[in-house]
Design a protein around this nucleic acid. Structure first.
Length: 382
RNA sequence: GGGCAGGUGGCGGAGUAGACAAACGCACGAGACUGUAAAUCUCGCGGCCUGACGGCCUUCGUAGGUGCAAAUCCUACCCUGCCCA
């Protein structure tokens, strides 16, 4: 399933490939989230063009709408959304946290599972680890995630530890259910997905180590770092990765969940041996006007991004782009940069033209994947 | 020529004597977003001073007037829309 093609001799970076029911994808990889069976604003043809090798969907969202039975009836998630390449499904563990914050009480956690109130119709749904795994199998995704509790970055250690222990119990339950379903699928000739376990522990290094020890004692096909901290608090994230990387089975892929808001974060993390990541931000901030720009350079120091803009981002809604006839990024090979100016994108954005969303999303995702290509190239050359 | 309605910030539009630099919306300016409740949300938006609280000045067609106090009342004029000649 996971094969390491080349290990960098400079750092922890490595090239690999993962074989799934829907073909092979290469690592390191950025996976665009398409939560509701759609990468917002773009279609499978665009995904193909920008070079997306694998995307994400979310089991909880698809359970609420249109329902896993419906997707199964319609021929599985790939056929349903017209995407032929690998698809990873998240379990809904993230929503246990995200739907409970901001004072909204759309989710409630107890040891058995999580009660979700659908943001769409207010209906109550109770998801257990077993249920999440069942949904993910029914949907037909290639890689599935255990049901976990995404721990907050700013919470007291005692709560985070309790939450981590719960995630551990849920990991065991998820795995057990997974193995049960694999048996059933074997008998019916259906192909089974790979299952990744999720490590928690918040921002605390000792808890993270404890979590790695437990989760990697279970036989998962890959391991993931979860929690609000990952990707959000980059300084802590890098510390955590450095701490836990040696403790994870080296022949298994490592996935940093929710990481990749800025291409610079991806560079740091690949260096430290992370193989997979995803983040809603490249697409979301694109829709909100923020676009990546800057030269991607490979040198003896590795991959770097050179840009005069703050964080390598411009906000296309700003008045200073009204007359700017340059593409978003001069070096970019995406459809948007090849054909349209900043001025045109500014015009589309200001007038809320739907085309803006597609062009902006294509660019940011392609930019991210161009950074990935540079990172692969860099490892290849070491 | 007569009748009626009306003229408020870039636009639309509240307010009809004191709590008005003036609701709300749009436009505009800026910011946020991290396993997607997100084509969303937040802030600013007459001028000047202040880090902020706040303070000062100038504004509701124009010019006068009444009154402690006027975008709000009175008078004249200008302009716009509709109706009648």
């Amino acid at each position: 399933m996971f094969k390491i093609i080349k290990q960098s001799n400079k750092d922890q970076g490595r090239l690999g490939e993962i074989t799934t029911n829907h073909g092979i994808f290469h690592t390191p990889i950025f996976m665009p989230p398409g939560t509701l069976a759609s990468v917002k604003a773009i279609g499978p043809d665009d995904l193909e063009t920008i070079g997306a090798e694998i995307i994400l969907v979310n089991a909880l969202h698809l359970h609420l709408r249109p329902g896993e039975e419906m997707i199964e009836y319609l021929g599985g998630i790939h056929k349903f959304m017209g995407f032929k390449k690998p698809i990873l499904s998240d379990s809904g563990g993230f929503q246990a946290w995200s739907l409970s914050k901001k004072g909204s009480k759309l989710s409630k956690i107890n040891d058995d599972g999580v009660e979700f109130k659908s943001p769409w119709d207010g209906n109550i749904h109770f998801i257990t680890p077993e249920k999440a795994i069942e949904i993910e199998h029914k949907i037909g995704s290639d890689i599935i995630m255990t049901f976990d509790e995404c721990s907050p970055d700013n919470s007291d250690k005692d709560y985070i530890r309790q939450s981590m222990l719960r995630t551990h119990r849920w990991a065991e339950r998820s795995l057990k259910e997974h193995q049960k379903l694999i048996e059933q699928e074997k008998n019916s000739g259906k192909k089974s997905p790979l299952l990744f376990g999720i490590i928690q522990g918040g921002p605390f290094l000792d808890l993270r180590k404890e979590s790695v020890k437990f989760i990697s004692s279970l036989s998962f096909d890959g391991y993931a770092l979860g929690g609000e901290t990952i990707g959000y608090n980059m300084k802590k994230t890098l510390e955590i990765i450095e701490e836990i990387k040696p403790l994870i089975p080296q022949d298994k892929p490592l996935y940093a969940m929710g990481l990749g808001s800025n291409p610079r974060d991806v560079i740091e993390v690949v260096k430290r041996g992370v193989d997979m990541f995803d983040c809603v931000n490249p697409a979301r901030i694109a829709r909100h006007g923020d676009l990546y720009t800057g030269k991607i350079i490979i040198s003896s120091k590795g991959v770097e991004i050179e840009s005069e803009e703050k964080e390598g981002i411009i906000n296309i809604s700003n008045s200073r782009y009204r007359k700017d006839n340059k593409p978003i990024d001069e070096d970019c090979d995406c459809y948007t940069c090849k054909n349209f100016s900043r001025a045109y994108l500014n015009h589309l954005y200001l007038n809320k033209e739907p085309l803006y969303l597609r062009l902006a999303t294509i660019h940011n995702l392609r930019y991210m994947l161009r950074v990935i290509n540079a990172l692969r190239e860099n490892i290849k050359n070491t």
